[in-house]
Design a protein around this nucleic acid. Sequence first.
DNA 1: CTTATTATATTCAAATTTGAATAGGGTGGC
DNA 2: GCCACCCTATTCAAATTTGAATATAATAAG
Lengths: 186, 186
Amino acid sequence: MSMKIAILGLLQEKDMHPYEITLIMKERMYDQMMKLQMGSLYYAVDKLAQEEYIEAVETIRSNDRPDKTIYRITGKGKALFEQLILQQIKKVELVFHPLYMALALSRYIDQDKVEKVLEERIREIEHQVNYAYQVYEEHISVVPRSALHLMYGRYEHSLTELKWLKRLYADVTARKLNDFGTPLSL
Amino acid sequence: MSMKIAILGLLQEKDMHPYEITLIMKERMYDQMMKLQMGSLYYAVDKLAQEEYIEAVETIRSNDRPDKTIYRITGKGKALFEQLILQQIKKVELVFHPLYMALALSRYIDQDKVEKVLEERIREIEHQVNYAYQVYEEHISVVPRSALHLMYGRYEHSLTELKWLKRLYADVTARKLNDFGTPLSL
DNA sequence: CTTATTATATTCAAATTTGAATAGGGTGGC
DNA sequence: GCCACCCTATTCAAATTTGAATATAATAAG
């Protein structure tokens, strides 16, 4: 879904070939917010082309590079784009990473080991938090506000996660994960 | 991955058939933290059985119900479980929902429409935030702390999202998503 | 009393994602 | 000057996920 939205969005700026789309997505750090896999991108492009949301404009042949097929968005494609965006905003999805599941079930295994990897993980997230904030600051005068929101959101979410992990870590070291009846210390 | 972790975790409590696993997952609200699809569950069970991380204990036949195959975790399976948990804690994945991508690209479409669906969405998330807090409070004396952390984490994450959406909404109403050069008002 | 929904348990085809293979040219380091 | 890795651009098989179909009984709703 995000893949289709990204493709249709970028093709509204200019006609492109799939590989070029990936380059721009990386440039704008879309790859930080969604899974960008070449296979899926080409699949989505084919799908969109089949149903005429986009169409091939020309194919550039070259003897030392693979052919490039340049696509353009159609009127039908623009309509789909709007529909997908609105639909995506409406739809309430529960997004929770696998990490949360893993930690919920970690009480079945050796707590010393959990403690150790959790420490490493916390250190990593601390870096992520700092990095995300830095990215935000550095882009203030460089990108439109829509992109700024994205960057600041990234920062806030990692901060939330960090706080959560630290609280959990305190309970792991105290071997309290299996305790009952007391509220968390917040 | 989460699917496998959940299966191996639950089979450590007792031998079960796949359908029973889904019931327990719902009871414990694991289905709020991961995607629980029957097809994927059965696929994962088959996969684990093929590689001998779990094994069939018995098959209960009945003439008015489909056969049930009850599985048990093996020693190899317990080792895998520990490994998967630790691996999952270590692995840093960027998890960002499609909503963020959609909103980042929403500047290409009619802002009146975006404004409208965004309002609805904000109202929904407000409910989610309240609900999540309530779930946390009501479970304080009912579940182990590992589960409490999960519930409080859910609350904090939705709160973070709500704040983010409200900030974005302010920019949408002010038609500022395409502006450059000024930091967000935080 | 009849119709609709929910619970039981699993299977399957179709859609999608993943991860690697391809293959030649450029670039940086030692 | 050579080796290793990165860039360009796409394709493909294999793994996985999705969503619906199956079939019957029990419960609920009207």
